[in-house]
C-alpha cells in the first residue's frame, strides 16, 4: 500500500462492506442457503428482495467472490435498471458479456441486475427471454425492493430470497464495531437514534454515523443535525412560500436548489411529492391530493423531456393560487 493510499479515506459503507459470505453477519438464513450454492458450484437464477440497505447487493458480491475468487468481477456483469437506458441496452450488454470466457471451475457467469423492479412489465418480459436464451452460460441475480413488482414468469424462474430489515441489536452492534475500529467517540443513545432514523437500512445508518463522526463526538444532537442537513429544507420552504402566495420568492428558492444541490427537475418534483404529505405542510387533505395529482402530471411531462424550470414554475404558480384560495 502506498503512503498516498494510506492517507486516503473511504466511505465506511465501502470500507466495512463484507467481502465474503462468512463476513456477512446478518441475514443468516439467506447466507446459509447461498453458501450451499458455493459448495455445489452451481446455482439457479436468483431474486433478492427486500428493503434498501439490507445487504442484497452485498450478498450478491459476496456470493460471486466465494464462487470465483478475488477477481470475481471479471465473471460478473453489473447492471442497474435505473441507470441503463432501456432493455435494448441491457440486451446488447448481456449478449456481449455472454461471449466472454468462463472461469475454469465454474461453468457459468453472473449477470447482476439491480433495481429490477424499476423495469416496466414489457421490459421484464424481454428480460425473461434473455434469461432463457443465455441460461446455459449465465445466471441472473435480480435485485428488487418490491418483489411484487416482478412479473410472475420471472419469479417462477428464480429462487427467491427475502432480506429483512436489520434487527436493532445487530445494527447497533455493527455501528459500535465500526466506531471502535475508527476510534470514534459516541453516546449510546446516539446510536439508538441512528437506528430509529435508518429503519433497518444499514447503508443509511453507516452514512449517518460517518457524517456525524466528521462533526466530532457522535451525540444525539449531531445525529439529528446530520439528518436535517442531508435533506434540504429548501424544498419545504419553497412549498411554503408558494402556498403563502409568494410565487416570486418560491421561484427564487427553486433556482437556488437547482444550482446549489445540482438537483434536476425530476429530483425536485419527487421530493415535493414526498414533502406535500408531511405534517409540516398545513393544508387540508383534499388539497394535498390536488397538488399530488398536479405533481404527477408535471413529473410525467419532465420524463417526456419538458423544460425543468417552466414546468416547475407552472407548478409553483398553481400552488400560489391554491394557497390564496385557501386563505380566502
Amino acid at each position: 500500500m502506498s503512503s498516498r493510499e494510506a492517507l486516503a479515506e473511504l466511505l465506511w459503507a465501502e470500507k466495512y462492506r463484507p467481502r465474503t459470505l462468512d463476513e456477512m453477519v446478518d441475514q443468516k438464513e439467506v447466507v446459509e442457503r447461498l453458501k450451499r450454492f458455493v459448495k455445489e458450484k452451481n446455482m439457479p437464477h436468483l431474486l433478492f428482495a427486500g428493503p434498501p440497505g439490507t445487504g442484497k447487493t452485498t450478498a450478491a458480491h459476496c456470493l460471486a467472490h466465494d464462487l470465483f475468487g478475488e477477481n470475481y468481477r471479471q465473471y460478473m456483469l453489473e447492471l442497474n435498471a435505473s441507470d441503463e437506458r432501456g432493455i435494448d441496452v441491457i440486451r446488447s450488454k448481456v449478449k456481449e458479456f455472454a461471449r466472454t470466457r468462463v472461469a475454469a471451475n465454474i461453468p457459468f457467469k453472473i449477470v447482476l441486475l439491480d433495481e429490477a423492479d424499476n423495469m416496466t412489465a414489457d421490459a421484464q418480459q424481454a428480460l425473461r427471454r434473455l434469461m432463457e436464451m443465455y441460461t446455459a452460460t449465465t445466471r441472473f441475480i435480480l435485485i428488487a425492493n418490491y418483489p411484487s413488482k416482478i412479473i410472475e414468469p420471472i419469479q417462477s424462474r428464480c429462487a427467491v430470497f427475502r432480506f429483512t430489515p436489520l434487527p436493532k441489536d445487530d445494527l447497533i452492534g455493527r455501528l459500535k464495531w465500526i466506531c471502535e475500529r475508527e476510534k470514534v467517540e459516541f453516546d449510546e443513545d446516539a446510536l439508538e437514534a441512528i437506528y430509529e432514523i435508518a429503519e433497518g437500512d444499514m447503508r443509511r445508518a453507516i452514512n449517518i454515523l460517518q457524517a456525524a463522526a466528521a462533526l466530532g463526538r457522535v451525540t444525539v444532537e449531531s445525529v439529528y443535525k446530520v439528518v436535517g442537513l442531508a435533506h434540504p429544507r429548501e424544498i419545504r420552504q419553497m412549498i411554503q412560500l408558494a402556498l403563502a402566495g409568494n410565487f416570486t420568492d418560491a421561484r427564487g428558492k427553486l433556482r437556488e436548489l437547482m444550482i446549489n444541490y445540482g438537483l434536476s427537475g425530476l429530483d425536485v418534483i419527487k421530493q415535493i411529492h414526498r414533502e406535500v404529505f408531511s405534517q409540516e405542510i398545513k393544508i387540508p387533505d383534499e388539497y394535498k391530493l390536488i397538488i399530488a395529482d398536479l405533481a404527477g402530471e408535471i413529473q410525467f411531462r419532465l420524463v417526456e423531456g419538458a423544460d425543468d424550470e417552466i414546468q416547475l414554475n407552472a407548478f409553483l404558480a398553481r400552488l400560489a393560487y391554491i394557497g390564496r384560495k385557501l386563505r380566502g
Binding site: L10, L11, A13, T57, N80, N207, A214, A230, H231
Partner: peptide, 27 residues
Amino acid sequence: LAPRLATSRSTVKSEVIPYLKIIFMNN
C-alpha cells in the same frame, strides 16, 4: 462512487451525496 459502493448512481445521488456534502462542508 456507484461501482465502489456497489449501488446505482441514483442511490448514490439520493443516499450518499447528501452525507458526503456534510463531511466536505464541516471537516
